[in-house]
Design a protein around this nucleic acid. Structure first.
Lengths: 224, 224
DNA sequence: CGGAGTCAAGAACAGTGTTCTCGCCTGTGC
DNA sequence: GCACAGGCGAGAACACTGTTCTTGACTCCG
């Protein structure tokens, strides 16, 4: 048992190191990860990597899950650091954490929210870590005293939202989940634009720009 | 002259056909375009393509410019079809045109708004066609009778917006450009999520969902 | 201490973008 | 009408890529 766990431990360390090197490569080179380059960086031959990951896609999946976890944890930690009654603070902290993490890990962020990788279909393992941020936003909107009126939610959309609320076993009026989704969409839309350099020559004060728009969304979500 | 234009014409037809085949390949296979596959589809050897495009990146750039033009034209045409005084109609038509085009050309859309291609830096030729949609949105917001109050635009952001307005030789209060940018960000954020299959198991009534959120944004932009 | 199982290496295969050279062949300028 | 420069496609070559399989070594376990 302890012997088997010794083997298992060095194996898991090898897993970690491969992912570490792959992340570095990804950060330096951009989206297309080369197994042979990773192997070279480790002083190893490419085929040896197949002892640890059955394919390049499997390695990518591992990186994606780690990235979702990293992003989700950053958001959760930032949000948890604020007093529970500071709804707007918790909201902005979540948004800032997402932006900060994305700017610090652009390649990994691109893996998550950019073009889907060609032959790659996201396995089921990725859906839980992927939904951390939206759940966080929904939880904050749930506590808002009242949300500003807006156009009525169409019935078909209401059905979808109802189902989502039921699945997550939460208790949240559809209007509020709708606002949370709106904010979520906007948050990642804006981070996308910034990380993918779509704002480079347009907006220079990007931090203020981001904060400003997230404030508009906080208003729209009824956060005091 | 007419002789030289004969060579030039068949050359330009060849250009067109290569792009056509490449688009087909892109639509079927996904983001990573293979020159050799394109050549095979044309019954030609890969190196022959280099007579027409100096590199794979150059071909990609040509596809990207075409795509920006296609998307921009779709938006402009849809917007132009509505009476000038129907501000909200023009707004929604623009949004719908963008969504429809993106869903009809997912791979090309991914080229535009997904992960930046690895070694590829967008040349200057792409900035003009890329800004058609935001200019359209800004023009509509410019005609709104009044925009609803919101948080003040921070000074640094105001400076950026002022500069943008000056460059485009328009005449538009910063608050309005800010709302146009907000809507623009949201529009592409939402289309991104839908095209990249991030809403697949979440929202089934995606058309209504889209319309609903674009309506919220129209309100935010003060469109009657 | 012997054997089972894990590991890394290396060769091989099919595929990629890109470059270069070689003939062909045709549209062009006289 | 003709000679020829130029454009063109083919093909080989190079340096890569992911992936598979075999081979040999080494190590941990009974």
């Amino acid at each position: 048992m302890s012997a088997s766990s010794l083997r298992a431990r060095v194996r898991s360390e090898m897993h970690q190191e491969i992912k570490e090197v792959a992340r570095r490569r990804l950060a330096e080179e951009g989206a297309n990860l080369s197994l042979r380059a990773v192997a070279r960086d480790m002083g190893i031959v490419a085929s040896a990597l197949y002892r640890y990951f059955p394919s390049r896609d499997a390695l990518l999946t591992a990186l994606i899950i780690d990235a979702y976890d990293g992003l989700g944890d950053a958001a959760v930690d930032a949000e948890a650091a604020l007093p529970r009654d500071d709804l707007r603070g918790r909201w902005l902290a979540t948004c800032h954490a997402v932006r900060t993490w994305a700017l610090a890990h652009p390649a990994e962020y691109g893996l998550l929210y950019g073009n889907p990788v060609p032959g790659y279909a996201a396995p089921q393992d990725t859906v839980a870590p992927a939904s951390k941020v939206i759940l966080l936003l929904a939880a904050i909107v749930a506590e808002a005293p009242a949300i500003p009126a807006g156009p009525p939610v169409p019935p078909a959309v209401r059905t979808d939202l109802r189902r989502l609320v039921d699945e997550q076993a939460g208790d949240l009026p559809e209007e509020r989940l709708d606002r949370a989704l709106l904010a979520w969409t906007h948050l990642f839309g804006q981070v996308n634009f910034e990380v993918f350099h779509r704002l480079d020559d347009m907006i220079h004060a990007r931090a203020e720009y981001f904060e400003h728009h997230m404030t508009v969304l906080a208003d729209l979500a009824g956060l005091p």
